[in-house]
Design a binder for these strands. Structure first.
Lengths: 151, 151
DNA sequence: GCAATTTATATTGCACGCAATATAATTGTG
DNA sequence: CACAATTATATTGCGTGCAATATAAATTGC
């Protein structure tokens, strides 16, 4: 096993690890703010989608958030139990489940308004780095989508 | 609620989401390769650390990987059950648990040699973008560490 | 028009991640 | 040296993520 081989397996040589660790840390940083809304981080993502476009089917949520029904179904049931969303079978296609906002779910948007700003402030990332990093991550997402399709 | 407020809550405006989604997708992409080694992705990260520096205490692993004992303890027990690592209380400080590699755990490093290259190939990210993105993510990690310390 | 296939969601099982708490060993303080 | 405070790890509980499988509705092929 040469030195070069060793280097490839070093934690610091990986791209995956800072991605994984930053994602975990960022989610942790959201928690105190989201606790006030009674949401977890993935629940917050679902609400972001619904605040933009409700109703949405489970499949639409799945496609936008890259999560499958095994994750979304129980998550949506918890949002429903919290009184934030409704779930009902589509009339046209009985396979589909349409998720819509309750008045309480819509009202929660007001409480969420300050979260992006507060998080941006807490992180302290400059506007340019913010846009640049987001852009690079979108590029990576595109490549990962292609790579995943090849399997 | 103004249009500008709405925009701040759009999924596409977030930095957190592509980070979260890319991390999930990348972990999913690792799975078929790691399955051959019988490792999950976080178990792979632990092995990366140990292949560089064994033995390591739970606390050292925790610090390097940004994971707490609630995650590491059961994970290490599974690695131990798989015969890849040993766990034993430190002689000098009985609070600490030293994690070391078994011969089987060390031998697994050979099988892992090709993983970084194979993943790089699958993703198809250019060397420059790879280094650039990794560098930006490290910068973000630094900021997130500071932000987390302030809470 | 009906059987085979495809599609949409649900269920099951397992391994995280992490907050909160518990336990035990060490260190600091008088 | 006793004893409070700190430190290292373990445990508990809950909510993901996701592969594998199940179920039921819609679509396709003949």
């Amino acid at each position: 096993m040469s030195k070069k081989d060793d280097q490839a397996l070093q934690l610091d040589a990986q791209l995956c690890f800072p991605l994984y660790a930053a994602s975990n840390l960022l989610t942790r940083l959201y928690r105190p703010l989201l606790d006030e809304l009674g949401l977890t981080y993935p629940q917050y993502l679902v609400m972001l989608v619904l605040w933009e476009q409700a109703p949405a089917s489970v499949g639409e949520l799945s496609q936008k958030l890259y999560l499958d029904s095994g994750t979304l179904t129980p998550l949506l049931k918890r949002l429903e139990a919290a009184g934030l969303v409704r779930r009902r079978r589509s009339a046209e296609d009985e396979r589909r489940v349409e998720v819509s906002l309750t008045p309480k779910g819509l009202a929660l948007k007001k409480q969420a308004q300050d979260i992006p700003g507060a998080m941006g402030c807490r992180i302290g990332l400059g506007a340019e780095e913010f846009v640049s990093l987001r852009s690079e991550l979108r590029g990576l997402m595109h490549l990962l989508g292609e790579a995943h399709a090849k399997i």
